[in-house]
Design a protein around this nucleic acid. Structure first.
Lengths: 252, 252
DNA sequence: CGCTTTCTTGACATGCATCAAGTCGGGTGG
DNA sequence: CCACCCGACTTGATGCATGTCAAGAAAGCG
């Protein structure tokens, strides 16, 4: 949960009590999953909200003929969908990439937050809005960018999100995605993903080997991906704001 | 505003007071825009939330070299982004397609709702979650579907959303989008959009002429688009639920 | 009624998919 | 500790869906 709080505090300063609440929620009901396993399946009734404590997962949708699209990656500290249980059934599945530890957040937890912890509510809205922005950017990515740009863009996004959660060391990070995963996320074929990665390597933009990615020059990779980080809303505004002044006005 | 309340009540039964609140908010500060004009631009500080009272608009993003992606269409009754003002700057623009009337919803309005109208809060979360689901489906659409499937899918979605808001008559509806708009939304070229539409016409799946679309056989169009309406979450659950029982438990 | 935007059609180009056949690497059991 | 095996990666040859370019026809609009 460290990464969740770390992430949310980029935006809102949380009180000690808020910390306690979040800590409790993220240690109470924890489940562990192996790699390449489904956590929730399309069509099921959503019950709890899932908080990824460790490991990587993804959200994906599938057509009857097997075509599969990864529509989001979940990294440690990510919340799958605040308040999903409002909906009657899942319109997508969530599956693990690596081993994953998940905390199940109950409806009651969100009630409690709504009733008495406005800063957390604000932080959850922020999380929701940023996720929406990321999804829009993926739409843009698939609709307008070339294979090379698309791949570079995706790698930039993952890199920055990992860094925000403190999961990079120097210029490298763990990178458990296979070329097949990247294909499903970018809408490219596996073969073309392979060739695109080679192109990025040849240009010195990435070093990708085993399950480790290094980005020797982020600016150049961002250029290659026509990457504008504004949509991640990492502006750290909350750092300067007194939480009370936000929470009294920002939430619905 | 009729269409907003109509839409939200598919999900939650609102109280008379809730109606009054929403009515007031959507008549207080109304602005009118001509067709093909920007309402908000990327980079601006979001101030109010926009509720589309009448007309069509879209959300779009643009690359520096001019490539443009429409990432969402707004129809009457749609709210652009609940609580956007939490974010420091817009990561996309909103532009009109037709003439549009917009109600500006203030931060204070959302505070008021948050403080005393839990059913509306629930309804807003529902709206937010459904919009997120739509955005995911667009990602899927661009990543996996062929031109023909993609176009059929988009038309199905628009059709169902219009129908939900009571904006279809029989098997036809107003359809102000140009082939250029469709191209920007589907990630196809204008020329290919033209050919794809002709194919749909030749198959008898649509009648599209002037600014009117007719769908003689929705089921067949849905088949062609591999369209599964689950992501629109139109299950009307709220109709049966007593609002109180939802609002006491569903919101954060 | 002329001007501009939108639509349509044809010819040609290309980015990426598909098919097919390896090679590498890392986990596992003998 | 080796040998095998299976998933992940790589490479080449070929095909096709969709893009691009160009020009004209229709349709809206002042």
């Amino acid at each position: 949960m460290a990464s969740l709080v770390r992430k949310l505090e980029q935006f809102v300063r949380l009180s000690p009590v808020d910390h306690v609440i979040l800590n409790r929620a993220s240690t109470e009901r924890v489940r562990h999953f192996g790699p390449r396993v489904d956590i929730v399946r399309e069509g099921e009734k959503p019950k709890d909200v899932h908080l990824i404590l460790s490991g990587w997962a993804c959200r994906y949708k599938q057509l009857e003929d097997g075509r599969r699209q990864v529509v989001a990656f979940f990294l440690p500290g990510d919340i799958c969908d605040v308040n999903v249980f409002i909906l009657r059934e899942m319109d997508h599945s969530i599956g693990t990439i690596t081993q994953v530890a998940v905390a199940d957040l109950s409806r009651e937890f969100f009630d409690q937050v709504a009733a008495g912890h406005p800063r957390i509510v604000t932080a959850f809205w922020w999380e929701t809005l940023v996720n929406a922005a990321i999804q829009r950017e993926w739409t843009m990515n698939l609709g307008q960018r070339t294979a090379l740009e698309r791949m570079a863009h995706l790698l930039c996004e993952i890199w920055l999100r990992l860094r925000l959660s403190g999961l990079t060391k120097g210029d490298s990070c763990d990178f458990p995605l296979t070329q097949g995963d990247l294909a499903d996320a970018t809408g490219l074929s596996k073969v073309h993903v392979n060739r695109t990665l080679q192109e990025l390597r040849a240009a010195g933009l990435i070093v990708l080997k085993g399950k480790t990615l290094a980005v020797p020059n982020l600016d150049r990779l961002m250029e290659a991906g026509l990457f504008n980080p504004n949509y991640l809303h990492m502006d750290h505004e909350g750092r300067q704001l007194d939480a009370a002044s936000i929470t009294d006005t920002a939430v619905g």
